[in-house]
Amino acid sequence: MYATLDELTERVDWELDADELRIGASALQDASDLATTYGRDWPVATVPRLVKTLVLKAASRYLRNPNGYTQSRAGDETLAWGDAHGRDAGSVYFTREEIRLLEELAGRRPGLTSVPVMAWGTVLGSAVGTGRVPVEGPGSSFPFFSDDRGPW
């Protein structure tokens, strides 16, 4: 786990009873697992402070509202659930912004990237432009490069 139960109890403004301590420990484990999923598996001893903060935020958010209510009234006992967090309402979750932060901390940046691609078994000759790609059927290879000045 990326945070301790003592750190979680410092984040809430009431004294946790035995059931809340048990639920809080589970929430910390769930939030740590989610942080690993959205970010990466950081060693506990060197986990970034922001990851610990996000885990504590998610766990304390769950402790404050374990059922995911968006509205509650004392008179006539009205309860409501919102679709703001969809299937995550009533569970430990990270917001979109928190997920983005975890991805950035893990070195994952969304966007386009360029990846060099080469066919399996490509044989590069001694001169530029003689690369060949293996093929099925007659002949053993197909020219990969056609320009003697460079591969592209």
Rank of each mutant, 00 (worst) to 15 (best):
Y2S: 01
A3G: 04
T4R: 09
T4V: 05
L5G: 05
L5I: 15
L5A: 08
L5V: 13
L5W: 00
D6I: 03
D6V: 08
L8A: 01
W14V: 12
D17P: 01
D17Q: 07
E20S: 13
E20C: 03
L21Q: 13
I23H: 05
G24T: 03
G24C: 04
S26M: 09
L28Q: 06
L28P: 02
Q29L: 12
S32N: 03
S32R: 01
D33G: 09
D33L: 07
L34A: 05
A35F: 00
A35N: 05
T37L: 11
T37W: 04
G39N: 06
G39R: 06
G39C: 09
D41V: 13
D41C: 10
V44Q: 11
A45Q: 13
T46V: 05
L50A: 14
V51A: 08
V51M: 06
K52L: 01
K52H: 07
T53K: 10
V55E: 02
L56N: 07
K57Y: 04
L63D: 00
R64Q: 14
P66E: 07
N67T: 15
G68L: 06
Y69G: 02
Q71V: 12
S72H: 10
R73E: 11
G75Y: 08
D76L: 11
D76W: 09
T78W: 11
T78R: 14
T78L: 15
T78Y: 08
A80G: 07
W81T: 09
G82L: 01
G82T: 08
D83S: 11
D83T: 10
A84Q: 14
A89I: 00
A89R: 12
A89K: 03
G90T: 02
G90I: 04
V92Q: 00
V92S: 03
V92P: 02
F94L: 06
R96D: 14
R96M: 05
R100V: 08
L101Y: 05
L101M: 15
L102H: 08
L105I: 15
L105D: 04
A106Y: 06
R109I: 11
L112R: 11
S114F: 09
S114K: 15
V115K: 11
P116T: 12
V117S: 07
A127D: 14
V128K: 11
V128I: 14
T130W: 01
R132P: 00
V133I: 15
P134L: 03
P134W: 04
E136K: 14
G137C: 06
G137L: 02
P138L: 09
G139H: 02
G139F: 06
S140L: 13
S141H: 12
S141V: 05
S141D: 14
P143M: 09
F144A: 15
F145G: 04
S146P: 00
D148Q: 12
D148A: 09
R149W: 08
G150A: 13
W152I: 10
